[in-house]
């Protein structure tokens, strides 16, 4: 292995870590500040793409043994399910609710269905972007 590559890969690892943190931040800040599921998803995707660039694709895929198409589908499922949930509770489709738990040690935890919804969005975005990139780059 060439020295250059080692350096590149080390840097990549670092950058990916930073990007992942950013993605997480963006995801949760969407509530009150710019951000949200979509952007977080795209940022997350770009982190993974960076990994592809730094390492070769196969290594990365070994490390993350996921079928990204399925991730995308899962995301849609999650997003739609939050809506279907409301049907079960007999409130209008896609009515969001906030559940607050007072957990020991962690204090108040707010769990909103919006978050679930946004998570679905983010997952779809990651899944789709990676699927497209992977499909094309495998083909070219």
């Amino acid at each position: 292995m060439k020295i250059n590559e080692v350096i590149l890969q080390s840097i990549a690892k670092l950058v990916v870590f930073i990007i992942l943190t950013l993605a997480l931040y963006l995801f949760f800040s969407g509530h009150n500040a710019p951000g949200g599921g979509f952007i977080a998803g795209l940022v997350l995707a770009s982190a993974i793409i960076l990994l592809f660039l730094a390492f070769d694709m196969e290594t990365v895929l070994k490390g993350i043994p996921l079928d990204f198409k399925m991730i995308a589908a899962l995301g849609v499922f999650l997003a739609v399910s939050t809506g279907v949930g409301s049907i079960l509770f007999d409130v209008p489709f896609l009515t969001h609710t906030i559940v607050a738990y007072d957990l020991p040690l962690l204090g108040m935890i707010e769990l909103s269905t919006v978050t679930l919804f946004e998570a679905g969005v983010a997952l779809t975005v990651v899944g789709v972007v990676i699927t497209i990139i992977l499909t094309i780059s495998e083909d070219v």
Binding site: G75, V128, V129, T131, T135
Partner: peptide, 11 residues
């Protein structure tokens, strides 16, 4: 999100 998913699967 559904649109995006279709696009991904379509590609």
């Amino acid at each position: 999100v559904v649109v995006l998913c279709i696009a991904g699967l379509g590609v």
